[in-house]
């Protein structure tokens, strides 16, 4: 099966909370991580993320692909930023060179030189911890929330019925869309189309994707007429609706929300007072 929901009831710490409470907490967490540049502060958020990951009860083999992708992605960009030295220029003005790597070859008379400075290193480390904390928390969502509950979660967070039901509908039609996509892929492969052999510039590549994109899009549009009819025929949107699923806040959910709000307020207060700015350990500057 091309698209299968990763969700399962696992009785994990995360699943013990009402999804709405967790989303609110997650938002506070996100806001908290972005105000700090001091990696010691970020370690606190990293610890929270790890707590949820290690109590998630999701077997490694189920998540491994998602993790490897994220890790690869984060490392690639961190290393890139590190080597090029871009990013973080607004945070520090002076740099302290730790060591200098000089290439043993020349390219058109230019000797590639890399200045490894204390600031660059700390910037990369901070960035890595921050992004990794956010990614760890985000990755857990599809494994932990019941896809049938997205609508009521967003309704419960105050979005209107129609918008919230849109979430449910999206969850419902993702697998259908996936199946249409794989059917089209098979149909074009049977006509000798080889997606592996896409070449040329960006524009040429997009053009070569047309045999996949056009049929899938046309199919989705054609199908949407039926979907709209089916919704109209069952009185969607005539008034406020009841939601079959019911979510209830319990004590622990209020505690989680409270914890989230505290994190947010403390983070904002600390950063306004000037704490948590970019920090380089003294021993590196020497």
């Amino acid at each position: 099966m091309l698209v299968a929901w990763r969700y399962k009831q696992r009785n994990s710490l995360l699943q013990s909370f009402d999804p709405r409470a967790w989303i609110i907490f997650f938002s506070c967490f996100l806001a908290g991580t972005v105000v700090f540049w001091d990696f010691r502060y970020l370690l606190f958020f990293f610890a929270i993320a790890l707590l949820f990951v290690f109590t998630s009860r999701i077997p490694w083999k189920d998540m491994s692909r998602a993790w490897l992708f994220i890790i690869g992605f984060i490392l690639f960009f961190s290393v890139l930023t590190f080597f090029t030295g871009r990013g973080g220029m607004e945070l520090y003005t002076t740099e302290h060179t730790l060591t200098k790597l000089v290439a043993t070859f020349q390219i058109f008379g230019w000797t590639p030189t890399l200045n490894i400075t204390a600031e660059k290193t700390m910037y990369a480390v901070s960035m890595l911890i921050r992004v990794f904390s956010i990614a760890s928390m985000t990755i857990l969502i599809p494994y932990s929330f019941n896809p049938a509950h997205y609508g009521i979660i967003f309704r419960g967070l105050g979005l209107p019925d129609k918008v919230a039901y849109g979430m449910d509908l999206t969850m419902r039609f993702i697998p259908t869309f996936g199946r249409d996509f794989s059917l089209t892929m098979d149909a074009q492969k049977a006509r000798g189309y080889e997606i592996e052999k896409l070449g040329g510039g960006l524009f040429a590549q997009v053009r070569k994707l047309a045999p996949l994109i056009v049929p899938v899009t046309i199919h989705a549009i054609a199908g949407s007429e039926d979907i709209i009819d089916a919704m109209d025929l069952r009185a969607f949107g005539v008034g406020p609706r009841t939601w079959l699923e019911k979510l209830t806040y319990r004590k622990r959910d209020y505690m989680l929300i409270g914890f989230g709000v505290v994190i947010l307020l403390v983070s904002v207060a600390l950063s306004l007072l000037g704490f948590g700015k970019f920090w380089v350990p003294a021993f590196l500057i020497g």
Binding site: A187, I213, P215, H219
Partner: peptide, 13 residues
């Protein structure tokens, strides 16, 4: 071997 799918809209582009 040529394969024709159920719905032509799955392949026409």
């Amino acid at each position: 071997l040529g394969y024709v799918f159920q719905s032509p809209s799955h392949m026409l582009f």
